[in-house]
């Protein structure tokens, strides 16, 4: 029988903590940037200017239809060759994760906005509200409620996607686990512990998403 020995890997607990913290930072950073990018892409797609619509659509399809790992490797190894400047793994990682999640967010946002009955926009216009007033006071407050479950689900996936930064040696949880493994030669314990840590971070989030989804179904 396998002789479990968590004591050895626990001695490297500080390395795990660095990993968790880095994973947290990349997740939050890329979600914040991703929301900004996603909003911009969403409104570009809803714009009356065809050029903006096409630009936004191209961005979305490019990032949604290529694997994230390829994007990360491309940004770190290929893009610097094209630009002739070096790009740190931090920059390449954060940028790629943000653009990637932004492409999904933008479609979630657009779906939420389009799900609002057009009578709402008309009623807002009928009292003289401008497009921006109608969007911020009438459409978005309703759309945000509708898009929240999908938004949280995508953000859960984003936490997991930070593990791909392993490939460019960003010190997130998966990479730090591999460091622990190479120091202790205890892969079973190290990777089990990493999985538990991811689970503890994500399980509450999925519960929140479920909660919002249930509440939305009730209020419909």
């Amino acid at each position: 029988m396998y002789n479990w020995d968590f004591f050895t890997v626990m001695q490297s607990f500080d390395l795990f903590l660095i990993g968790v913290w880095t994973t947290f930072l990349y997740t939050v950073g890329s979600i914040v940037l991703g929301v900004i990018i996603g909003l911009a892409a969403c409104f570009a797609r809803l714009s009356r200017f065809a050029a903006l619509r096409i630009l936004s659509r191209s961005y979305q399809e490019l990032f949604r239809c290529t694997p994230l790992l390829v994007q990360i490797l491309w940004a770190y190894y290929a893009l610097p060759m094209l630009l002739g400047v070096s790009i740190s793994n931090t920059t390449a990682g954060l940028l790629t994760l943000s653009l990637y999640v932004g492409s999904f967010y933008s479609e979630i946002f657009r779906g939420g906005i389009n799900a609002i009955d057009k009578g709402q926009r008309e009623a807002a216009a009928a009292v003289g509200m401008s497009g921006v007033q109608s969007m911020t006071h009438i459409i978005l407050p309703q759309a945000i409620k509708k898009m929240l479950p999908a938004f949280i689900n995508q953000s859960v996936i984003q936490v997991k996607n930070t593990s791909l930064l392993y490939a460019i040696s960003v010190a997130e949880l998966t990479y730090m686990t591999s460091v622990v493994n190479s120091e202790t030669y205890r892969p079973l314990e190290a990777y089990t512990l990493a999985a538990v840590m991811y689970f503890v971070m994500l399980f509450p989030l999925t519960q929140i998403a479920d909660h919002f989804e249930r509440r939305m179904r009730r209020s419909d």
Partner: peptide, 25 residues
């Protein structure tokens, strides 16, 4: 304008439905 299907703002109370326009516009 008053619409066939009312088009009230469901996320706002009756009072806020009525005051939104006068306050914003």
């Amino acid at each position: 304008m008053v619409f066939q299907h009312f088009n009230l703002f469901p996320h706002l109370s009756v009072l806020d439905n009525i005051t939104k326009g006068p306050r914003l516009v």
